[in-house]
Amino acid sequence: MAQVNRIPPDVEEGVWTVVTRTSTYLLDFGEMTLLRAPGVGGDEQGAWEVSALRRDSEDIPLLGVKTCEVGASAQFWVRAVDDPDVRTWRITTPVVSIERIG
């Protein structure tokens, strides 16, 4: 669909891919989920180490986006899958590209 430079914090719809230096994220605002595919990123120089995070390659509940802009780290507000009272931030390596795909 369309490449953009940022996802607005108040976005309420659509499916988006966010490619960072080390990973690709799939954000689905219809289902309110976030999926991280580690090691599938945009760092062609290999200067960034890929970290293993809990629930990699699984949908986790997405509560919102604080910031997501090309050139800076994104911050996603998420909830633990197994405990609805646990909320945390997912902070990424710098964002390389953002695309709305649905």
Rank of each mutant, 00 (worst) to 15 (best):
K66G: 06
D28L: 04
D85K: 05
M32L: 04
S57F: 13
A72I: 14
R6Q: 15
A74W: 12
R79D: 00
T17L: 02
G14L: 04
E69T: 15
A72P: 05
G41R: 14
E99L: 05
F29N: 09
F76N: 00
T67M: 05
Y25R: 05
G30V: 13
A2Y: 09
A80H: 08
L63M: 09
Q45D: 15
V4H: 14
E44W: 15
M32D: 01
V50S: 08
E58D: 12
G14H: 13
D43W: 06
E31R: 12
M32V: 01
L62R: 01
L34C: 09
G14D: 13
S57E: 08
W89E: 00
A72H: 15
V78E: 06
C68T: 08
T92H: 10
D83E: 04
V70F: 00
F29L: 08
D85I: 11
F29Q: 09
P8G: 10
G71A: 12
V95E: 12
D56F: 03
W16H: 04
P9F: 06
G46W: 15
Y25I: 00
D83P: 08
G46R: 11
G42W: 08
C68F: 12
S23Y: 10
V50R: 07
I91R: 06
V11Y: 10
I98P: 13
E99Y: 08
Q3A: 11
L34A: 05
G41I: 09
G42F: 07
D10S: 15
W89S: 02
W77N: 03
W16I: 12
M1F: 13
V86Q: 03
G64C: 03
R90I: 06
D10L: 11
A52R: 06
F76H: 04
Y25W: 14
T88P: 01
T22P: 07
D83N: 07
L63I: 00
W48S: 09
M32C: 02
D59H: 07
G41K: 12
S73L: 04
G42Q: 14
I60C: 00
I101Q: 06
R87C: 01
S57I: 07
V96Y: 14
P84F: 09
Q3L: 03
G71W: 10
W89G: 01
F29Y: 07
R79N: 05
A47M: 10
R87S: 05
G71H: 13
C68E: 09
T93L: 11
E44D: 08
I7Q: 10
G102C: 11
E58S: 03
D28G: 10
T93S: 13
I60T: 00
V78N: 02
T88C: 00
Q75P: 02
A80L: 01
V96T: 15
L62N: 00
